[in-house]
Simulated scan of single mutants.
Amino acid sequence: MDNSLLISPALGIIVGVLMGLTGAGGGILSVPLLVFALHLNMVDASPISLSAIALAASVGALLGLKNNLLRYKAAIFMAIFGVILAPAGFWLASHIPNGPLLLIFSSALFYSAFNQYRQARNTALGIPEPPRQPPPCLLNPSAGKLTWNVPCAKALALTGGLAGLLSGLLGVGGGFIIIPALKRYTNLSTQSIIVTSLGVQALISGGSVIFSAATGSFNFIVAAPFSIGALGGLLIGLAISKKLSGPKLQQVFAVMVFGVAVSLTLKGLHLL
């Protein structure tokens, strides 16, 4: 029996548990786990990672929709631009050697680790966010909807497009881009931001997987057990998140991401 059939669901469970405990950011470790454990290159690992993110994020988004936390119009709007640019990311990935691509991915991990650690540290120490100008996308309290205008549309379109490009290029859902952007450009609650980000990731990742399958570069044999494992892990992570989640866990996860980024950097430099 192919070892990947046994290893891939275990890897999926790990990714799912991390997503359940830490939110959308846990999926960023999908590609590194596939690269190190299954010895896949970035181009092959990316669609497999996106299939797991699409499945897990869809469940989270649907739960958020049930609780009226998902801003689905904003999620769909952002995802449209993400789906349009994701094929460009796939094209770039196919034309960049594996070594430099690993270095690009490690840079994204360093950025994500730094942001998560800083935010978790500020939360643990009770440091408030610095004052800022009113964001372009404001929630109408009476209607419970975002008030749309040109600056708001531009900000969300740019965010969705960048998330889609990185989705195709690196095989990530883009939560490390979407969540900070929604915090900057909207006044949504933290829960609503996370759920809306999951909605965007589900749509972009799902579209990216369909594109990958249509072009014949999708390994269904590895992706199916990996995605099912991720879904199971997500449910486990959500079940225990109330006891283990918090700033300290976010800091531990950020340190873990930093360590993975260092490992990918070394691997990428070795392949140059």
Rank of each mutant, 00 (worst) to 15 (best):
F176I: 14
I177P: 06
I177Y: 11
I178V: 15
I178R: 12
I178G: 08
I179W: 02
A181E: 01
A181S: 10
A181R: 07
A181H: 02
A181I: 07
T186Q: 11
S189I: 01
S192K: 12
S192V: 02
V195T: 14
V195F: 03
S197P: 00
G199S: 06
G199A: 07
I204R: 00
S205H: 01
G206I: 05
G207W: 07
S208F: 09
V209H: 00
S212W: 08
S212E: 00
S212A: 15
A213V: 11
A214D: 01
A214W: 09
G216C: 08
F218H: 11
F218I: 13
F218Q: 06
F220S: 12
I221T: 09
A224W: 10
P225I: 14
S227T: 12
S227W: 03
G229D: 03
A230C: 07
A230Q: 08
L231C: 01
L235S: 01
I236S: 04
G237Q: 10
G237P: 02
L238R: 06
A239Y: 08
A239T: 06
I240M: 12
S241E: 11
S245T: 14
Q250Y: 12
Q250T: 05
Q251H: 11
F253S: 07
A254E: 08
A254G: 08
V255H: 04
V257S: 04
G259Q: 03
G259P: 09
G259L: 13
V260R: 13
A261F: 06
A261D: 03
V262I: 11
S263Q: 15
S263N: 13
S263M: 15
L264F: 14
T265A: 14
L266A: 11
K267V: 05
K267S: 15
L269Q: 02
